[in-house]
């Protein structure tokens, strides 16, 4: 049901019955290492190219999600997914193996919540019984496509972010046990004219703020109604900016915990990740691993995840264009 300006309220409360998370070595050394289903020791994952390695991450995450559930893969009606690669090849090629009806989406790093929102909508409206939502990113494919060759010696500025090597997948079902998807807000494109592709946290902060505010306003809630509000990958530069903007707009964050997946997935003190994590996999592995596990333990009752995405291309920033950004927010609740 459409409520407010841009929010879907899911009356039937679709359930995330199972998730799968697979990460690379750096994430495996981070503070959330124990929450992932599988940690790869190498970045190449015994594959011949970085692109194949990224695809393997997603394949393994979807397989893990199916294995942990009580259903078979062929019971899933649709697969919704996307990634950072040109023509979203990681998802498309992974979907080739699955043999499921496939909806490819692109929202850069916001794809995690974009795909979860669409999957929940399909289930809530009765158009599907089981839908898989998945996304992935790989540090080396992102470096190769958006920046420089991985072994090229260039100094990254302190506000740059480190793309997470990881994939997360979730199975959304009409009935079952687990955290429920209550509502989703589809974000607007926000562009405040920033052009530095290394400073994505600052470019994306207004999108996160806009979507979180819309989500709260549409649902007639305040931040204190949430145990946790997390952004996707604003990292150590973008998150304080988001706090400043909330203050500017008169929204108090008292009574909730406001954090960012890019800050949670790595230890910024000991790991050389500059401002923190980013990438489609960042919010996916943190949400489908750490956050959902905390919800299942009863530590968190209501959580909002606002995944942020910088919708730039290597071509657009070379031509001097600013960075359009987006954020999609989803509210999850654990009953009982």
């Amino acid at each position: 049901m459409h409520v407010g300006r841009q929010t879907w309220l899911f009356k039937n409360k679709p359930v995330i019955i199972s998730t799968g998370t697979v990460v690379g070595p750096d994430e495996g050394e981070g503070p959330l290492a124990d929450t992932f289903d599988y940690v790869h020791e190498d970045l190449d994952m015994q594959e011949k190219s970085w692109e194949k390695a990224e695809r393997k991450l997603l394949e393994q995450a979807t397989q893990a999600a199916v294995q942990k559930s009580t259903i078979q893969e062929n019971q899933i009606n649709y697969f919704v997914g996307g990634d950072l690669m040109n023509q979203i090849i990681s998802n498309t090629f992974a979907a080739r193996k699955m043999g499921l009806p496939y909806i490819g989406v692109f929202g850069a790093c916001s794809t995690s919540m974009e795909s979860l929102a669409i999957a929940s909508l399909l289930v809530d409206t009765g158009n599907a019984e089981y839908v898989m939502a998945g996304t992935c990113s790989h540090n080396c494919t992102a470096e190769k496509q958006f920046r420089y060759p991985t072994e090229y010696g260039s100094q990254k500025p302190p506000y740059a972010q480190f793309t997470v090597t990881g994939a997360g997948a979730a199975i959304v079902a009409a009935t079952g046990d687990g955290p429920r998807v209550i509502a989703a807000t589809i974000g607007k494109i926000m562009d405040f004219g920033l052009t530095d592709p290394f400073n994505m946290g600052a470019a994306m902060a207004p999108a996160a703020v806009d979507t979180i505010q819309a989500h709260l306003a549409d649902l007639n809630r305040t931040p204190s109604d949430y145990d946790l509000i997390v952004t996707g990958d604003l990292a150590s530069v973008g998150l304080p900016i988001a706090r400043d903007l909330f203050k500017e707009n008169g929204l108090s964050l008292e009574g909730t915990v406001f954090n960012d997946c890019g800050l949670m997935v790595f230890d910024l003190e000991t790991q050389a990740v500059q401002a923190g994590g980013s990438g489609c996999g960042c919010s996916a592995v943190v949400t489908y691993g750490h956050i959902l596990q905390r919800m299942q333990k009863g530590e968190l009752k209501r959580v909002m995840i606002a995944a942020t995405g910088a919708l730039l291309s290597p071509l657009s920033y070379q031509q001097g264009e600013s960075i359009p950004c987006i954020a999609h927010a989803v509210t999850l609740e654990m009953e009982g």
Binding site: N199, A202, A205, P206, D210, A217, D244, F246, E248, G250
Partner: peptide, 22 residues
């Protein structure tokens, strides 16, 4: 925050962002 309108300009935002840029 409830209105969905943004009163700050691009220049103002750049100033806010610059303050947080290491």
């Amino acid at each position: 925050w409830k209105t969905g309108e943004w009163s700050i300009s691009q220049e103002q935002y750049k100033q806010i962002a610059n303050k947080r840029e290491p």
